[in-house]
């Protein structure tokens, strides 16, 4: 899994951004987003705020769970009492394997190119569904198919880590713990007289604590 964590203030500006990878199942904690995905991730985050704004009136929980997904990129949200939003974008891919770089997908975009692939015979074509996904996330994840996805999750779930399945309850719980911990740290940070909920959180200590929380839970 690759993660992109973001704290968004009430004016929709990010006050803190961090990319990291999973540390479970031997992950090295480095995010593996493709360049296109890195460009579009902020848009995706920003767009999902629409759902946060809707959902906040329908639940009394601070943790809003998974609120949005576009193909395999999922977004979970957490709402603080001051309406500051924590957003976590997570993109599953097999641990310790870098995604196949998307040039291969960009060739399939060429307008006069392989139209034979236009209506593929196989009903669930992972690569084309990914190129369809506008999020242009990394291409490889074998989890495009729910069946494959569930099988991989059952394989990974045995080892006790977070399964590579963003919709599973274990992942949900892990993200909840992560959010709760970050919330604690963040509260202390915004109580600083030199900052406030609208300002950037620039403290290196805070950053280190968030990274540690990520390593611990995700």
């Amino acid at each position: 899994m690759s993660y992109y964590f973001c704290i968004v203030n009430t004016r929709d500006q990010p006050t803190f951004e961090l990319e990291f990878g999973t540390s479970k199942q031997g992950g090295d904690g480095i995010a593996r987003f493709s360049p296109e995905a890195r460009e579009l991730n902020p848009f995706l985050m920003h767009a999902s705020l629409d759902y946060v704004d809707d959902l906040q009136w329908y639940t009394n929980q601070m943790y809003l769970k998974r609120i949005d997904h576009i193909s395999h990129t999922h977004i979970s949200a957490y709402l603080t009492p001051t309406s500051t939003r924590f957003l976590l974008l997570h993109l599953p891919h097999p641990p310790n394997t870098a995604p196949v770089p998307p040039p291969q997908s960009s060739t399939s975009y060429s307008p006069y190119g392989p139209y034979t692939n236009a209506f593929p015979g196989t009903t669930f074509n992972p690569s084309s569904s990914l190129s369809a996904s506008a999020s242009s996330t990394a291409t490889t994840t074998s989890s495009s198919n729910t069946r494959i996805l569930s099988s991989s999750s059952s394989a990974g779930g045995g080892s006790g880590g977070i399964p590579n399945n963003p919709t599973s309850p274990q992942t949900e719980e892990a993200i909840r713990l992560f959010f709760t911990e970050v919330n604690e740290v963040w509260l202390k940070s915004v109580m600083s007289p030199f900052g406030g909920p609208l300002e950037k959180v620039g403290s290196p200590v805070f950053r280190a604590r968030v990274v540690a929380a990520g390593r611990k839970y995700l």
Binding site: E39, F43, D50, D54, Y109, P111
Partner: peptide
């Protein structure tokens, strides 16, 4: 409160369409 507004989503999808057209060379 503009409940159910999807303006930010619209911004995202429009941007995405731009990127995709770009990739198609149009």
């Amino acid at each position: 409160l503009r409940l159910g507004s999807r303006r930010r989503q619209a911004a995202f999808w429009n941007t995405l369409a731009t990127v995709l057209w770009e990739r198609l060379g149009e």
